[in-house]
């Protein structure tokens, strides 16, 4: 069984070897997960697996049995409201074409769940596996700093 954004899925045998990224996009229609290189280098397909950032193009469904997966669609509030980190990406101007954005947000979220007040250096380290060709990254670092202050104001 795999849990995606709080919903449980039983996986039939014939899907065990299917790529997680393909399953999310094709079977669950969760197309916020993007495929940029399909060899696990660019980070566009990043999802959270038990709160760790992982590349979904490098995993088979077999590899994630009994896992709790969060995709970009799963971090919005139930009423569709944005997560503070998503809002910070908008407010800091960390989005241009938007293709790397879901993966970037989820890698940043994995960091913030563990480290409530990362330094700019720690943010760089945590996002090193996510490529962006548009922004030049500066505003992405700003967004993560901004979100940390909003998510954990009393640090």
């Amino acid at each position: 069984m795999i849990t995606v954004n709080g919903i449980h899925y039983e996986i039939p045998e014939e899907l065990h070897a299917k790529k997680l990224s393909d399953w999310l996009r094709e079977d669950l229609m969760l197309t916020g997960t993007k495929v940029g290189c399909d060899i696990g280098v660019c980070g566009s397909c990043t999802v959270l697996i038990n709160d760790e950032a992982k590349r979904s193009c490098k995993l088979k469904l077999n590899d994630v049995d009994n896992s709790n997966i969060t995709t970009i669609e799963g971090i919005c509030a139930p009423d569709g409201g944005l997560h503070p980190l998503q809002q910070a990406f908008m407010d800091a101007g960390a989005i241009q074409c938007g293709f790397c954005t879901p993966g970037m947000v989820l890698s940043a979220l994995a960091l913030l769940l563990k480290n409530h007040r990362p330094t700019r250096g720690e943010i760089r380290l945590a996002l090193k596996g996510n490529l962006c060709r548009c922004t030049g990254y500066q505003q992405i670092i700003d967004a993560v700093e901004l979100a940390a202050g909003i998510m954990y104001p009393n640090k």
Partner: peptide, 11 residues
């Protein structure tokens, strides 16, 4: 910043 920012950031 971005007229479609909300769409992008929510996937």
């Amino acid at each position: 910043y971005h007229i479609n920012g909300k769409l992008h950031v929510s996937g």
